Amino acid sequence: MTANGRRLQDRIIDLIIDSGLTPGSPLPTENQLVDELGVGRNSVRESLRALSTLGIVDIRHGYGTFVGAAPITAFTPGLLYRARQSLRHDASVLRDLMEVRRVLETSLIEAVVAGADEDLVGELDALVAAMESGDLVETDQRFHETLFRPLDNVIALELIGLFWTVYHRVEAELDPPRPGRAEICHEHRMIVEAVRAGDPAAARDALGAHFVDIEERVARLIRQSTEAD
């Protein structure tokens, strides 16, 4: 991308902000943008396409272009690409990803415990029960989303979802998980019990224990890559 292309994207973003447009609002037409910005039609189209990949604008063919919500999940393809490339060399991206996820979840769990109510604990209980016989991966994801939902922190939830998606897309490259279904369910049950008891320290410990196997598998892959070199 050229410097001129980046500047034009910044100008379109400035126009959205300065005009008070919100997600879902229609953008000026292509002709209006050409006149407003004083650039060629192709330049406007290229910039809009680039902004669309980031979720900043939403191009709806046949309807127009609208302001997007710019979700963090728009970065999933790029982060997934970096993780997959890294797996061919040293797996450092996946290691760093898991470190950030651990820090994020264990730092937020105290607020979850402080605000947890019977409804939340009941939902978590039901999800652990579903893990025991249903789709373990899907239910595990729903568990973590539900656990942190009461914080009303959209960015945190989107980051957790982003990390989850990337990890599970590359998990097949790692050794098989050591814990079986029963142990994985037990790990989640310990998190619920700590939340039920209102014990943030126990909740942090339970979350940390949940990450141990994943981190060990990533570490083994890094060692194997280093030895191969």
Rank of each mutant, 00 (worst) to 15 (best):
E158P: 04
E187D: 13
L8V: 01
I155Y: 14
T146V: 05
S133M: 00
A116P: 07
V67E: 09
E132F: 01
T53N: 09
L21T: 01
E110I: 04
R102P: 00
D213A: 09
M98P: 00
G24Q: 06
A156G: 11
E30V: 13
E99Q: 12
V113C: 10
D18M: 09
I191Q: 01
A74F: 07
L8N: 00
A201F: 03
L33S: 09
T226K: 13
R60P: 02
M131T: 03
A194W: 05
L147W: 00
H61A: 14
A50P: 07
V112Y: 09
V93T: 14
G115S: 11
D119I: 10
L136P: 02
R11I: 01
R41E: 11
V128E: 10
I160E: 09
R11P: 02
E132V: 02
A209E: 11
R169T: 11
W164H: 15
L80D: 13
A91I: 03
E183Y: 04
L51V: 08
V170Y: 07
Y63S: 15
Y63C: 09
A201R: 11
R11Q: 15
G5A: 15
F148H: 13
G78A: 14
E145W: 02
V34F: 07
G5R: 12
V93D: 12
V113H: 03
A91K: 02
A126H: 06
N153M: 02
E36C: 08
D14Q: 12
M98Q: 15
R49F: 10
R217P: 03
L79W: 09
V121F: 02
Q224D: 15
E193N: 13
G68I: 04
C185K: 03
E183L: 12
M1F: 06
A74Y: 05
D119C: 00
G62V: 08
D175S: 14
R102V: 10
T65Q: 00
